[in-house]
Computed example of a mutant assay.
Amino acid sequence: MQDLIHRLIAATNAFDVKAALEVFAPDAVIDDVSVGQTFAGSAGVRRYLEQFFVGYHTVSKVLSIDSHGENQALVRLDFSGDFGQETGRLDVTTNADGLIAAIDADLD
């Protein structure tokens, strides 16, 4: 799980949407309370990454990863970009194939 999360962060920090999408299941869902939207499937995840990571030049730093079993982890992050600096969390769930199936995201 930690490798998967670090791959996601490395890809988003490089603004490499294609590489970031490779860690998501095709039917993945990102529910981001801080923006009040849910992004479903590959097209939705792509839109989320392009809008909130590429669009805002967001760079993320992992503060902690707390695993909850084999397929779930709570990730605390420091985000910086055109919006300033924020901290937040990603509650990440993976599927049987080891890909991200769901992320519940929120800022502190």
Rank of each mutant, 00 (worst) to 15 (best):
F15Q: 15
I9Q: 07
S42A: 13
S60I: 13
G84P: 10
A101Q: 13
S67E: 15
L63V: 06
D32N: 08
G36D: 02
N95H: 01
A20M: 06
A11L: 04
R47E: 07
F53R: 05
I100S: 04
A101M: 11
F24R: 00
A25E: 09
V35F: 07
T93M: 13
F79A: 05
Y56T: 10
E86R: 09
A10N: 12
N13Y: 10
R7Q: 14
Q72S: 13
H68F: 08
V23E: 11
R7N: 12
D97T: 05
G41C: 01
G44Y: 02
D16V: 00
A96T: 08
Y56G: 11
G55R: 09
S42K: 15
G69L: 03
T87F: 07
G44R: 03
A10F: 08
A11I: 01
D106R: 08
T58I: 02
G55M: 01
F24Q: 01
F24H: 02
D78P: 00
V35Q: 11
S67N: 14
R47Q: 13
L49R: 08
E22Y: 04
D106N: 10
A25Y: 07
I9D: 07
Q85S: 12
A11R: 01
G88L: 04
L99E: 14
A101P: 04
K18Q: 15
V59E: 14
